[in-house]
């Protein structure tokens, strides 16, 4: 159970997050909102790249804010970025290996994870991969060692519809296999509703709705802030 309490982030005079309190249960939760709502800032706070000016972040009673980003990654809090971060100068296998080595996993486990996400021909250099393969590689790198929390920042951005469809079941399988708490940020509402059981909606740094897909999507506040806009356009 990942628990955020009154998280405030200030960028100069602007409040990126304005007192957000919410709890992500085990399983896949979505985090959505219009541009600039604070979704990525939220992930940055959770993974330690941004320090909140006040508030608490706990996982099963453990204070996450006391660890630095590297420490959090080693402990099991993993994340992806909007721009995927595979190392171009290494091969697929070396990319998996470098994650395994630093996240306390053995090469044999890295091999299993390659099978799990469905990567083959591991000796190819990364620049030759398709976008789908790069996204799969990125996912594989985040679940080395002993993952506990997975933060996915637009994991299917840049993928064609047909390919992003196969991502939801994969994330579900991974979530079950490692019994993870997954937070998924995406613009693609179809994808989010397919993958997630719960959805949190942010707007202007505030939490405006949180609950299961059906109730959130029919929430008038959400309609007004986010979906209404996108329906009109």
């Amino acid at each position: 159970m990942l628990n955020c309490k009154d998280v405030v982030v200030k960028f100069g005079g602007v409040r990126g997050l304005d007192g957000v309190s919410l709890t992500f249960e085990r399983g896949i939760s979505g985090l959505v909102g219009p541009n600039g709502a604070g979704k990525t800032t939220m992930l940055n706070v959770l993974s330690g790249f941004v320090s909140p000016s006040s508030g608490r972040v706990e996982f099963d009673g453990l204070d996450l804010l006391s660890m630095n980003p590297t420490g959090r990654a080693r402990w099991g809090l993993r994340r992806t970025f909007q721009q995927e971060q595979s190392v171009d100068s290494l091969t697929v296998w070396e990319n998996l290996l470098v994650a395994a080595e630093n996240l306390g996993s053995r090469p044999a486990d890295a091999r299993q994870i390659a099978d799990l996400v469905g990567l083959t021909e591991l000796d190819r250099p990364v620049p030759l991969l398709s976008m789908l393969e790069r996204r799969l590689l990125e996912l594989g790198r985040t679940i080395m060692g002993r993952p506990r929390i997975l933060l996915l920042d637009e994991p299917v951005a840049g993928l064609p519809e047909a390919e992003s469809l196969m991502f939801a079941p994969l994330i579900e399988r991974i979530c079950e296999e490692f019994s993870l708490t997954v937070v998924l940020v995406d613009h693609d509402m179809d994808f989010v509703t397919r993958a997630c059981s719960n959805i949190a909606v942010l707007d202007f740094g505030r939490l405006i709705a949180y609950g299961d897909c059906v109730s959130v999507l029919s929430d008038p506040a959400v309609e007004a802030a986010y979906l209404g806009v996108s329906n009109e356009s």
């Binding site: 980003p69 590297t70 993993r78 971060q85 190392v87 100068s89 080395m144």
Partner: peptide, 13 residues
């Protein structure tokens, strides 16, 4: 070299 945040996220110091 590729990206410091990326490296941090896979546990590299």
């Amino acid at each position: 070299k590729q990206s410091e945040p990326g490296a941090v996220s896979i546990g590299i110091h």
